[in-house]
C-alpha cells in the first residue's frame, strides 16, 4: 500500500513541477520547479529498490541545475518576469504533444509485445551498486568509455574556450600587482 501511495504522490509532484517549469514566465520559478522535479524523480528509483541510481539522480541533478541557476543569474533579473517571444501557440503545443506521444510509444511498444527480456539477470548476493558496476563494465563497456571520451573532449574544449587568460591568476598575484593591472586597464579605458 505504501508503495502505491508513494508512487502516486511522486507522480503527481513530478508532473506538477515540470508543468510549472514549462508554463511559467518567471525564471526563478522555472529553475526551482525543475530542480524539485529532478529530485522527486529519485523517489521512483527508491520505490523500485534502485537506491544507487536514486542517490546518483539527486547528486547529478542538483549539480546540473545549480549550473543553470548560475546562468539564470547572469542573464535575467530573476525577481522579474521574462517577456517571452511567443510564436504560434498551436504549432508549439501540437508538436510537443506529438513528440511526447511518440516517445511513450517508442518505449512502450516493445514492453506491450513483451519482447523485453532481462539478458543479464540480477546476480545473487550482489548489492545495488555492484550490479550497476557489473553491467556497466561488461555489457555496456564500450558506450561507457565512449561517453567518457566525449565528456573529456567537451571538458578540453570548454577549457580552451574559457581559458584565454589562464596563465594569469588573480589568486597568486599580490595586492600591488593587481593594483598595477587595474591602473593599466583604467588608462586604456580613459585614453
Amino acid at each position: 500500500m505504501f508503495e502505491a501511495v508513494a508512487f502516486y504522490l511522486f507522480a503527481f509532484l513530478t508532473i506538477a513541477m515540470f508543468f510549472i517549469t514549462v508554463t511559467t514566465s518567471q525564471a526563478l520559478y522555472a529553475l526551482s520547479a525543475l530542480a524539485a522535479g529532478m529530485i522527486f524523480i529519485s523517489g521512483f528509483f527508491f520505490i523500485l529498490g534502485a537506491d544507487f541510481l536514486g542517490a546518483v539522480q539527486i547528486i547529478v541533478y542538483t549539480g546540473a541545475v545549480m549550473a543553470l541557476y548560475a546562468f539564470g543569474m547572469m542573464f535575467f533579473d530573476t525577481t522579474r518576469e521574462v517577456k517571452e517571444k511567443k510564436g504560434n501557440k498551436f504549432i508549439v503545443v501540437g508538436l510537443a504533444t506529438l513528440s511526447a506521444v511518440l516517445v511513450v510509444a517508442i518505449f512502450a511498444a516493445p514492453m506491450l509485445s513483451s519482447n523485453v527480456l532481462a539478458l543479464y539477470p540480477a546476480i545473487e548476493g550482489a548489492g545495488n551498486t555492484q550490479s550497476v558496476g557489473l553491467v556497466l563494465f561488461t555489457k555496456y563497456l564500450i558506450p561507457f568509455e565512449v561517453a567518457a571520451i566525449m565528456l573529456l573532449v567537451a571538458m578540453v574544449a570548454g577549457i580552451v574556450l574559457a581559458g584565454k587568460k589562464m596563465d594569469l591568476s588573480l589568486t597568486l598575484l599580490n595586492a600591488e600587482e593587481i593594483e598595477q593591472m587595474d591602473a593599466e586597464i583604467n588608462k586604456k579605458v580613459l585614453s
Binding site: F52, I58, I59, T62, M66, G127, T129
Partner: peptide, 21 residues
C-alpha cells in the same frame, strides 16, 4: 540503505539550494 554515504552527501548538497534560492 546500502548507499548511505552517497545519499548523505547528495542530500546535504541540496541544502545549499536554501541560501542560493
Amino acid at each position: 540503505i546500502d548507499v548511505g554515504i552517497l545519499y548523505i552527501l547528495g542530500v546535504m548538497a541540496v541544502g545549499l539550494f536554501g541560501p542560493m534560492l
